[in-house]
Computed example of a mutant assay.
Amino acid sequence: MKVLLVNGSPHLKGCTYTALEEVAKSLEANGVETEIFQLGTKPICGCIGCGTCTKIGKCFIDDSVNEFIKKAKGADGFIFGSPVHYAAASGALTSFLDRVFYSGSKHLSYKPGACITSARRGGTTATFDQLNKYFTINNMPVVSSQYWNMVHGNTPEEVRKDLEGMQVMRVLGANMSWLIKCIEFGKLNGIDIPQKEERVATNFIR
Results as ranks from 00 to 15, higher is better:
residue 87 A to S: 14
residue 87 A to N: 11
residue 91 G to T: 11
residue 94 T to G: 09
residue 94 T to L: 14
residue 94 T to I: 10
residue 95 S to F: 09
residue 96 F to N: 06
residue 97 L to H: 01
residue 97 L to W: 03
residue 98 D to K: 09
residue 99 R to H: 12
residue 99 R to N: 12
residue 99 R to M: 12
residue 100 V to N: 02
residue 100 V to F: 06
residue 101 F to D: 02
residue 101 F to T: 10
residue 101 F to Q: 09
residue 102 Y to S: 13
residue 104 G to V: 08
residue 106 K to C: 01
residue 106 K to M: 08
residue 108 L to Y: 06
residue 109 S to R: 09
residue 109 S to A: 11
residue 109 S to E: 12
residue 110 Y to M: 03
residue 110 Y to R: 02
residue 110 Y to W: 13
residue 111 K to G: 10
residue 111 K to P: 05
residue 111 K to I: 08
residue 113 G to M: 14
residue 115 C to A: 14
residue 118 S to I: 01
residue 120 R to D: 07
residue 120 R to Q: 14
residue 120 R to A: 15
residue 120 R to N: 05
residue 121 R to F: 13
residue 122 G to S: 12
residue 123 G to L: 05
residue 124 T to E: 02
residue 125 T to W: 07
residue 126 A to L: 09
residue 127 T to K: 01
residue 127 T to G: 00
residue 131 L to T: 07
residue 131 L to D: 04
residue 132 N to F: 02
residue 133 K to D: 08
residue 134 Y to V: 07
residue 135 F to G: 03
residue 135 F to C: 04
residue 136 T to E: 15
residue 136 T to S: 15
residue 141 P to S: 15
residue 141 P to K: 07
residue 142 V to E: 09
residue 143 V to L: 09
residue 143 V to S: 04
residue 144 S to N: 15
residue 144 S to D: 03
residue 145 S to A: 12
residue 146 Q to H: 15
residue 146 Q to S: 15
residue 146 Q to V: 15
residue 147 Y to Q: 12
residue 147 Y to M: 15
residue 149 N to D: 12
residue 149 N to V: 05
residue 150 M to K: 06
residue 151 V to L: 01
residue 151 V to H: 01
residue 153 G to S: 05
residue 153 G to T: 03
residue 153 G to R: 00
residue 154 N to D: 13
residue 154 N to Q: 13
residue 154 N to W: 08
residue 155 T to Q: 03
residue 155 T to N: 06
residue 157 E to G: 01
residue 157 E to H: 01
residue 159 V to Y: 00
residue 160 R to V: 01
residue 160 R to Q: 14
residue 160 R to E: 10
residue 161 K to D: 09
residue 161 K to N: 08
residue 162 D to C: 11
residue 162 D to L: 01
residue 164 E to R: 14
residue 165 G to L: 04
residue 166 M to E: 03
residue 166 M to F: 05
residue 167 Q to Y: 11
residue 168 V to C: 09
residue 168 V to H: 05
residue 169 M to V: 10
residue 169 M to K: 06
residue 170 R to Q: 11
residue 170 R to D: 02
residue 170 R to I: 03
residue 170 R to A: 12
residue 170 R to P: 04
residue 171 V to T: 12
residue 171 V to P: 00
residue 172 L to W: 07
residue 172 L to V: 06
